[in-house]
Every structure is written in C-alpha cells, then in structure tokens.
Amino acid sequence: MVEVGGVELQSPVMAASGTFGYGTDVPLCDRKALGGMVSKGIFLNARPGTPPPRIVETPSGMLNAIGLQGPGVEAVIRDYAPLWATWDFPVLVNINGESVDEYGELAARLDGVPGVAGLEVNISCPNVREGGLFFGNNPESAAAVTTAVRRRTSLPLWVKLTPAVSDISAIARACEEAGADALSAVNTFVGMSFDLGSGQPRLAFRTGGLSGPAIRPLALYLAYQVARAVSIPVVGIGGIARAEDAMEFLLAGCRAVQVGTATFVDPNAIGKIAAGISLPLVGKDPLAQSSDRPLASR
C-alpha cells in the first residue's frame, strides 16, 4: 500500500485520467496491481466532445483532442460511483469547470458520495475552449480553483498541473498553500500536426495534447521540479510505458505514477509496470532520496 495525499493506493502505479474511462472497459488489466485510477475528466453538465479526427499518431507519441466528452456529474454519481464503491482500488474523479464556482459546485456535489476516494482538479486540459488550461497557467488562478474546491469538500484533493508554464514550481507551491493534498505532474503538452495533402491540421480541434514516450524526459524534469518545490506528495505522469520509466519518476521524487497512453497500446500495461518495479525503491522516502541530487543542467 502507498498513501498519497489521503488516498490509500494498492500500488504506486495508477491509471491516468482519460485513459481508463470510468474503470469499466479495461477487461485485460490486472486490477490487483492497479494502485488506483482517475476517472475521465468530468464537468457539471454533459458534453458531446470535439468532432473527429480526435487523435493523431506522432513519433513515439500521440496528439488527442477529445474535448472532455462525458455525461456530467449526476450521471457519473448514478451510474459509476456505486460500482467504484465495490472495487478494491480507489477511484478519484477528475473535475473540470468553466469557472472557479463550477469547480466548487462539482466538489460539493461529489463530497461524501460513496465510491469517490478523492478529487483530481484538472486545471490543465488543453482541449476545451473554456476553463482547463486557463486556470493552470498562473499561480493566482490555480490557487483560486484549489481554494474553491477545498472549501466545499473534505475529500482528498489533488491538483493536476499543466506543463505549459514558465515556472511550474510557483504554480505547485500556490496549490499547496491553497490546500491541495497532492499534485499530479504533468498533463499533456499542446501540439499540432498538419496534413500535407489537405494543408489542414490533422485534428479537427486543430491542436491537441501530446502524450506518450515522446514527452517522458520533459515530464520527468517538470515532476522533479514540482517534487522539490512542495512537501505534499507528487504523482508523476508522462509517457510511462515500462517499469523502468516509472522508477525514474520515483527517483525524481514522485510517490506514485500514473500511466496513460501505454494502456492504449497494452491494456495490461499497468499490471506489467507495477510487477516490474523493484520493491526497495518503493519503500524509501522518495523526497529524501532525490534531495541530494543535482538539478538538471540548463
């Protein structure tokens, strides 16, 4: 068991938001190895998502612009939370708002719902025109969202950070001071790809979030900076596909990791990664372990 910001994980390897649905559609995943999962990001109300094409493969990665398609919070509480309450691993709900108030509303609505182990506040989605990334790119708005959620719930509160900032440490500290219990670092990087035949962007939304092994070293360095900036636990995310990748994030100071795109390739990627992490590493205090390491050269 690994404790992260008030959530007891079965292992240090979790499923990242948007890559595991609501936990009901991944039949080949070894659920005993799964540390926990974060739901697909939800809003207060249902959203249709963006038109296709929504995904493009890129070198060692993929761009996606799904647009947070989902049924809204009431349907999630009605249709999925009762199932989550019967599962052995914890489920956090990834929440998204178009305004600070909407984040607070969502937190209040999910507070005390059986099956909801915590909230991951998404201030970093690149694929919605409103909210998301807007809140994550300066310390004041990141803190405002965190405060609004903290006031309305006693659930464990994680904040998912965007890589698209010049000083991620400042954002991380602002979230910590506003009451976050843990930080998820990082969300996808905004990117794009053009089709030479049509001269148009390959994604209907034009831009998308880049994920997969292509972003791993970038994400690792950001997670490393976040882990050094705060005293709350950090959950590393970004292109993790093998146990060795996960162990790099643990060495960088993360207490756990989330696996995303690798699950698209291998439905049991998480099971294999969790099984391959060597135990002595997990037992140590990762923050202490990384504190004497030099910062990456610039």
């Binding site: 948007g18 890559t19 595991f20 649905g21 559609d25 991944v26 039949p27 080949l28 697909k40 249709p48 998502g49 963006t50 038109p51 296709p52 094409p53 929504r54 995904i55 493009v56 993929m62 996606n64 799904i66 398609q69 699950t263 698209f264 390739v265 439905p267």
Partner: peptide
C-alpha cells in the same frame, strides 16, 4: 473505418457522429 487509439473503449479517439447528436 476511423482513426483509432486503443480499440478497447477508453480513449474516445474513434468518435462517430450519430444523428442522435452524440459521438
């Protein structure tokens, strides 16, 4: 035929627009 990510239902990449209004 659509572009497809996972093929197992979790990535929502293979969206098909239906006359009912949903993908």
């Amino acid at each position: 035929e659509t572009y497809m990510g996972c093929g197992t239902g979790v990535c929502l990449g293979c969206a098909v627009p239906r006359t009912s209004g949903v993908f």
